[in-house]
Amino acid sequence: MKNNKPLNIKKKTINFMLCILFIVFALLQLNDPDGILWFSIYFIVAILCLYNSFKPIPKSFLIITIVALLFFAVLHFSLFIDYLKTENKEEIFGKMDYKKPYLEGTREFIGLLLATLGLLYQIKIRKNDN
């Protein structure tokens, strides 16, 4: 049976924090050349986290969105592997260097994984309420 009851306050609080986190991620993307794409991805995840606090999002929609995020992450996986092979791991926190595309690719890969985890949490909290 479909569960339409609202989430408890703890789950709503976590979702609100996830929403704020992904909005911050979205805003940080606005200075990138492809910022609109990344802003959209993170902002959509933020809205889904907030919306799911009040009204259940169909599991099938969440799964399709997760699959899309993971597909996009796979496109960045080779850059992540390149980063893992480097000596200086701290440069991931530095400025973008166009001679080192693996830096931005790794950031994007990790961001997509975080977005995926945020949506997996949305499935988990609704499943646990049944």
Rank of each mutant, 00 (worst) to 15 (best):
M1Q: 12
M1A: 14
K2M: 14
K2N: 14
N3R: 13
N4I: 12
N4D: 14
K5N: 12
P6K: 12
L7E: 01
N15Q: 12
N15W: 01
F16C: 12
F16I: 12
M17R: 13
M17N: 15
L18Q: 08
L18W: 04
C19N: 09
I20Y: 14
L21M: 13
F22E: 01
V24T: 14
A26H: 02
L27W: 09
L28C: 02
Q29G: 00
D32A: 09
D32L: 09
D34W: 07
D34G: 09
I36M: 14
L37R: 15
F39T: 03
S40C: 11
S40Y: 06
F43T: 05
I44R: 06
I44D: 07
V45I: 14
V45M: 04
V45F: 02
Y51A: 09
N52V: 05
N52E: 11
S53N: 00
F54Y: 15
P56F: 06
P56E: 10
P56L: 08
P56H: 07
P58I: 07
K59A: 11
K59G: 07
L62E: 11
I63A: 12
I63Y: 14
I66F: 11
A68D: 09
L70H: 06
F71A: 15
A73H: 08
L75G: 09
H76Y: 08
H76N: 11
H76Q: 09
F77I: 07
S78D: 10
L79C: 03
F80Y: 08
D82M: 07
N88V: 07
K89E: 03
E91W: 03
I92N: 06
M96H: 10
D97H: 06
D97K: 08
K99F: 11
P101V: 05
Y102E: 02
Y102F: 10
L103N: 00
L103Y: 03
L103A: 01
E104G: 05
G105T: 06
T106G: 05
T106F: 03
R107A: 06
E108Q: 11
I110M: 05
G111K: 04
G111R: 02
G111Q: 05
L114K: 05
L114Q: 08
A115W: 04
T116P: 04
T116R: 04
L117E: 06
L119M: 14
L119E: 05
L120D: 04
L120V: 10
L120C: 12
L120G: 11
Y121L: 10
Y121T: 04
Q122L: 14
I123H: 07
I123P: 06
I125P: 05
K127D: 15
N128V: 15
N128W: 13
D129F: 05
N130M: 11
N130R: 11
